[in-house]
């Protein structure tokens, strides 16, 4: 029953997307918009499918994915280290919180020129930028979650013989996991966006670079392909994370 209702809702959601594509097509067929400025949806789809068999395109996709994964992994490692420091030491916690508070609202993309200056035009500045941007959503969610761990869970574990340090691993970490995953989900989207932008600003490969290159050549059809690709990458990774979440958090109430 539920599954049927769910898929029905899913179908309803396809309507506006279909409508948008239809309106797009109508604009072109009616001749209101020249196809040089806006290619037809069919042409975009055909080019996207063709690109999937193109090794050059797949190479660009791989570069983007590599930067995404590396940056995200670095962000997670930093979250783990800072979270552990904050959880074990009151002094570290008191020192870290205001620093994070100050650094979080800074637009990290503004640091990109400085990163290029110090690290050159290769992968390194892009990976670091992804890490810097992915870091804060996870960190803030982790801190929020760790601060909200129910006192009596800690007491129950302590009474059962768990040491104070042991509760960090056995209670605080699993209790914070839902927040960490929620933060990661936001961070993943941020990471997709940032890696693309960094590649647009300075790069010789990657999806962002593809967009800029096509734009310079006024190949509007080709401009849509990397945009569709990054959207698909984001959706796929988000779906993977949601699946991981379901497995890891079987005991927790479902998040919408």
């Amino acid at each position: 029953m539920r599954a049927v209702a769910g898929s029905l809702h899913g179908l309803v959601g396809l309507a506006p997307i279909a409508g948008l594509v239809l309106a797009w097509q109508v604009l072109l067929t009616a001749g209101w918009v020249p196809s040089a400025l806006l290619p037809s949806p069919g042409a975009v789809l055909a080019r996207t499918v063709a690109s999937l068999g193109d090794p050059a395109f797949l190479g660009h996709l791989a570069s983007t994915l590599y930067r995404l994964a590396a940056g995200f992994a670095i962000a997670l490692a930093i979250v783990f280290a800072l979270g552990l420091a904050g959880a074990t030491s009151r002094i570290a916690d008191a020192a870290l919180r205001p620093v994070i508070r100050v650094l979080a609202p800074i637009p990290k993309i503004a640091l990109y020129p400085a990163l290029i200056l110090s690290l050159g035009f290769d992968d390194a500045p892009k990976i670091i930028l992804v890490a810097a941007d992915a870091l804060f959503p996870i960190l803030l969610a982790t801190y929020g979650g760790a601060g909200a761990v129910e006192q009596k869970l800690l007491w129950s574990a302590r009474a059962a013989g768990t040491s104070r340090a042991g509760t960090i691993l056995k209670v605080v970490l699993p209790a914070t996991l839902p927040s960490i995953l929620t933060g990661s989900r936001i961070a993943l989207v941020v990471a997709c966006i940032v890696v693309f932008l960094a590649e647009m600003i300075t790069s010789t490969d990657g999806l962002g670079y593809l967009l800029v290159r096509s734009g310079r050549a006024f190949q509007t059809v080709d401009m849509f392909v990397p945009l569709l690709a990054i959207s698909a990458v984001g959706l796929a990774l988000d779906g993977a994370l949601a699946a991981a979440r379901r497995v890891l958090l079987r005991g927790f109430p479902e998040e919408e």
Binding site: E150, K152, L153, W155, S156, A157, R158, A159, A160, G161, V171, P174, A175, L177, L249, G251, F252
Partner: peptide, 28 residues
């Protein structure tokens, strides 16, 4: 400090949501 000679039972249950019934009871 707390110790396994005194076992608490709270109004809020305070079960570990990430553990099964068996896992919760086996914890201590």
């Amino acid at each position: 400090g707390p110790g396994p000679d005194r076992g608490p039972v709270f109004q809020e249950f305070a079960l570990f949501p990430w553990k099964t019934v068996l896992g919760n009871v086996a914890y201590g």
